[in-house]
Design a protein around this nucleic acid. Sequence first.
DNA 1: ATGAAAGCGCTAACAC
DNA 2: GTGTTAGCGCTTTCAT
Lengths: 350, 350
Amino acid sequence: MSKMGKQPTIKDVAKEAGVSIKTVSRVINNQRDVKPETREKVLKIIKEIGYQPNAIARGLRMKKTYSIGVIIGDITNNFYSDIVRGIEDFALSKNYSILLANSDEMLFKEKMYVKVFLEKQVDGMIIVPSVGAKDYLKPILKKMPLVFVDREIEGLNVPSVTVDNEEGAYELTKHLIIDHGYTKIAYISHTIGVTTSEKRYAGFKKALYEFGITPIEEIIKLNNKTIEDGFNATQEIIMSGYRPQVIFTSNNLLAVGAMKALKYYSIEVPRDIALVTFDDFKLAEGFRPHLTVVSQPSYEMGKVATNLLFKQIEENAIQNEKVVLPTKLIFRESCGCSLFNKNFRGGEKA
Amino acid sequence: MSKMGKQPTIKDVAKEAGVSIKTVSRVINNQRDVKPETREKVLKIIKEIGYQPNAIARGLRMKKTYSIGVIIGDITNNFYSDIVRGIEDFALSKNYSILLANSDEMLFKEKMYVKVFLEKQVDGMIIVPSVGAKDYLKPILKKMPLVFVDREIEGLNVPSVTVDNEEGAYELTKHLIIDHGYTKIAYISHTIGVTTSEKRYAGFKKALYEFGITPIEEIIKLNNKTIEDGFNATQEIIMSGYRPQVIFTSNNLLAVGAMKALKYYSIEVPRDIALVTFDDFKLAEGFRPHLTVVSQPSYEMGKVATNLLFKQIEENAIQNEKVVLPTKLIFRESCGCSLFNKNFRGGEKA
DNA sequence: ATGAAAGCGCTAACAC
DNA sequence: GTGTTAGCGCTTTCAT
């Protein structure tokens, strides 16, 4: 605000209009008990001198800032940006602004942002908690409305919005086994210790066991983070000798890495090896072949999370609602469905 | 903050430590002139009672909030999320937080957010200005540090970071004409009235004229916004009868729409019709065929914009720097380069 | 090396 | 209907 000459304050308006500060305050906040003519006059002066209320001063006084803190992994990841969009749209409708932060899934960053947001007196926070966040968060939930999105922390009394990760992975795996007859299924999963990752892997294995298929360790790669990790894991799988019929990646970044690797080795999808993944995203439409995915309602997740947060902020309801949204299987080309049926146009299943 | 019991204040710390408020303030802000033992004691009390400074109160007093407002079109668009990431990373290193808003390129939304951010006393703003923003912004730049990113508004004294849009489109078009011998080039452009859009179109036409090619009106579609618009425009082009050899889309959303349409009509890229676009993005690696693109340094743009903003905020330098970053041509498969050369691996050109 | 008191811009009792 | 005044939590002269 270095540039600001002296911004007019409520006091200036009062003086100029020849009324008291409180009267101006009443006009600004649209309260009753102001004579219409007085209101007119004040409004006119406000316009004339270009007065704008100072939300910081108001925030200090009211102990309410109309801002919420949002900490996600990386805004550059489509899944998170969809969530943030959902949050913002809903927050806007309630006149809140959002303070955004990227944790890169690193605990120290997340912690630091939480501290900053606390100091900035946000009215609440929506967080994708990193591994190990439990300890530092425990004392915080007592003084600040909190909601988890995408992941949750067991044993912590915080409302959360997640997706049925286990069920989604289970259903997709079942599709691979039943509808395609695949038995050699490679699996590339993301960060160990994260609930989404563990649940998806559990769903995958559940389907395998159910059909009496023994997982081949050589083609199961855990704990990957980036596109490059996806590339490398795929490479290792290709080199392993246990040539799988299909590769299942547990998020979109890994899927991209896998596609890249398959392409690099001139392995055609789905003819040579099929490919499926958890996570859909807008640009997936541009992918060839179209990816068969477990789709998450990311935008919706943001909305629901915000709703859960407002329940705490505005109704002061100290609750512990755990919302689990359903995933959706979207059958496209990469699983091999298109090979069976020339006229295949894809389809969905809730 | 509804949940907060009474948060301890600087006063509580002072009382508990048996010193004055000012001494505590000195400790918090790491100022000198505090006896080491006193400092120790205060620090201990702070920890004990869990005191956290109130940035709102400090902001009111200092007239500085360490927050900056960022208004982009849509965080869901990879180009913008990259920019925001660049902004955030740099802002963080200077201890600022960012308030994020999506304008959807709609003037009334942008205006509203600017008003909110002004009231929230942000220290500065980085904006992707919508069409027609000039009028309402004019009085604002006098009182608030501002930087434009991606687009600029001519005649307004605001520092900006853009890319050489005309040159980029010109070079890519030249590649299509010279290296591929294409003469029937379709063009699908985004929003009319936006500098990026106009400049790209100008670069496209410049190359055409230079080689004596007359644009075919039927296959030039202006003013598109969404993936669906890209789909529709492509459909119209296909239906037009003037079958082009290549389609040039002016941003990534339109490219995805175009791919979708081409796929829908079983037109193979680049064999039947080639496709190129402005805008690269991380997930483009998953696209088949790989898109030949004019790449923009989006992350860098965010960084530079933030730097320009801090120059104003911290050095109070009222300047008017217009930074124009270079684009990069990335030759991949979709233009047809891969058809010429079996061993083609793509390449770049600054 | 430390403290008392004023004030940032606003809202809210409580008067009148 | 309207005004006076205190105070939100902090920083900052200016004393001491």
